[in-house]
Design a protein around this nucleic acid. Structure first.
Length: 275
DNA sequence: CTGTGTTTAACTGCGG
DNA sequence: CCGCAGTTAAACACAG
């Protein structure tokens, strides 16, 4: 677990026309167990939010768990993602005693100085003890988490690669730097992780690249509350089989092509077959 | 050519 | 220590 810190953005986001920029300026590194969230999140609605359930900071929550920060956020209806945010933007911190600081603030730059008369946030802001400026510190989310956030946050539950980039950069100023590095990682994550599925473009939506969505069966990846790290990597059985058939040179022989990981995969497949 | 997507590999860090 | 998740780099293929 990471130390509990607050990420704060000190500058006021004035330039952005995106109403989301009015969102909270802070986010939490806290990775407290989700049990407390679960108490706030009795429902795990359809896929779309289920993947985030109990692990991600934007886990679907019902209204009474929505801190005022999020209410403010959700009230901003100009963005197509606001609806999702209304559901997703519940915070860990809102229930973890850190002053209602959003773990997943609204889109549109974390640098947005908060202007809401929101008591929780004001409390957080007044709390100099925790308030530290990590203007461009790396957010506590894995790339998997970031991608999931982005996709979950989209109205269609699918985004192009560049939209995912944009979401992340909008949300986290940290990722406006060294773009080549982290964007490569994003692409790697999308390809490598079965929880992300490519959705071909339809003829009415021409353009470069596919859409990326979340595998419908990939829910609860982040169970156990730590959204820095999934508890278990989601594996698509079909893809696993495909990989295995492509990689496996001959019967019984375990390829070392992808090192330990593949060996592990092969073992798990064999076990599954036996069972 | 550039962006997108895939794959391999090496590495770090965490948890059992 | 070991296995796994995640990160980063890099090479490559392909499509717009």
């Amino acid at each position: 677990m990471l130390p509990q810190k607050l990420y704060t953005e000190s500058s006021m986001s004035t330039a952005s026309s995106n109403a989301m920029s009015a969102m909270t300026s802070t986010y939490s590194m806290n990775t407290m167990p989700m049990s407390s969230m679960n108490t706030c999140s009795p429902q795990a609605p359809a896929f779309g939010s289920s993947i985030m359930n109990s692990g991600m900071p934007m886990t679907t929550m019902n209204g009474n768990c929505m801190p005022s920060v999020q209410m403010q956020y959700s009230a901003i209806a100009s963005s197509p993602i606001s609806n999702m945010n209304a559901r997703m933007s519940s915070t860990m911190s809102s229930v973890n005693g850190y002053g209602g600081v959003s773990a997943l603030p609204g889109r549109g730059d974390l640098s947005g100085g908060d202007i809401s008369p929101n008591s929780a946030l004001q409390r957080a802001r007044a709390d100099k003890t925790y308030r530290r400026s990590y203007t461009h510190a790396k957010p506590p989310y894995s790339y998997i988490s970031l991608i999931t956030m982005a996709i979950q946050n989209s109205p269609q539950k699918m985004l192009t690669l560049s939209e995912i980039y944009q979401f992340i950069m909008d949300l986290f100023p940290f990722y406006r730097q060294n773009q080549q590095r982290w964007q490569n990682s994003i692409r790697h994550s999308l390809s490598f992780n079965d929880c992300f599925v490519k959705v071909p473009r339809t003829p009415d939506k021409p353009g470069k690249g596919s859409f990326w969505s979340l595998h419908p069966d990939s829910g609860n990846m982040f169970e156990n509350g730590c959204y820095l790290r999934r508890q278990k990597r989601f594996k698509d059985e079909k893809k696993e089989m495909q990989r295995a058939s492509h990689k496996s040179p001959s019967h019984g022989e375990i390829p070392i092509v992808r090192g330990k990981r593949l060996r592990y995969t092969m073992v798990t497949i064999l076990i599954n077959l036996i069972i």
